[in-house]
Simulated scan of single mutants.
Amino acid sequence: MIIAANLKTNLTRAKTISYLNKVERFIEKNSITQEVLVFPATSSLVKHQAGIKVGAQNAYPAINGAFTGEIGYEQLEEFEIKTILIGHSERRHVMGETQEELVKKFNFYKELGFRIVYCVGEPLSVRESGHDKMMEYISRQYEGIDVMYKNLIVAYEPVWAIGSGLTPTPEDIVTIHKELKTKSTAPLLYGGSVKVTNVQEVLSLDGVDGVLVGSAALYAEHFCSMCESAQLLEKKINNKKES
Rank of each mutant, 00 (worst) to 15 (best):
S215A: 11
Y109Q: 07
S43L: 14
R127H: 13
A56C: 02
I153T: 10
K240G: 10
H48N: 04
T167C: 03
E143Y: 03
A230G: 14
A56T: 04
K105M: 08
T33A: 11
S43W: 12
G210E: 13
K236A: 15
K181V: 01
N58G: 06
E122S: 11
S31G: 05
P40G: 03
L218A: 11
Y219W: 07
G207H: 05
I138E: 00
R140F: 14
G192M: 08
H88N: 05
M148K: 15
E70P: 02
I145K: 04
Q49P: 04
R115W: 10
T98Q: 08
M95C: 11
L152A: 00
R92A: 03
I71K: 02
N151P: 09
E77C: 08
G192F: 10
D209V: 13
A62E: 00
K241Y: 11
G113R: 09
F108E: 09
E77S: 08
N58D: 14
K8E: 11
A5F: 03
N238Q: 15
S89G: 07
Y60N: 05
I237R: 15
M148A: 11
R13H: 09
N64G: 02
N198S: 03
L218F: 14
G163F: 06
V211Q: 01
G163V: 12
K29D: 08
I173K: 04
R140L: 08
T185P: 09
H88P: 09
I32M: 12
H48P: 08
I52S: 05
S164L: 03
T68S: 08
L152I: 02
R140Y: 13
Y60F: 13
L76Y: 00
E228M: 14
G72N: 03
E111F: 03
V196N: 06
T175H: 05
N6D: 13
G165A: 02
K195C: 08
F26K: 06
G191S: 14
A62L: 00
T169D: 01
I81T: 06
G55E: 10
S43P: 15
Y149D: 00
S184V: 10
A4R: 09
G113M: 11
C224V: 06
K178E: 10
I81E: 07
M95W: 15
H88F: 12
V126W: 10
G72P: 02
I52M: 13
V46C: 04
V38Q: 01
V159G: 01
V174N: 00
E122Y: 02
N30G: 08
S129M: 05
I116A: 05
A161L: 04
D209G: 13
E128Q: 13
V23M: 09
L205P: 05
Q49N: 14
S125I: 15
G96P: 12
L188C: 06
A66T: 15
A216Y: 01
L212Q: 07
T169M: 01
G65S: 04
T33H: 10
I32T: 07
A41G: 04
L218T: 10
T197F: 00
V213Q: 03
T83H: 06
T167S: 06
S31V: 08
T197E: 12
R92H: 09
T185E: 08
F67N: 10
N151H: 12
G163Y: 07
E228I: 11
R140H: 14
P40A: 01
L212A: 11
A220D: 04
K133N: 10
G130I: 05
E78V: 06
K236M: 15
T33N: 13
M1K: 15
E78C: 00
K178F: 04
T185L: 12
I84T: 07
A216Q: 01
F108C: 04
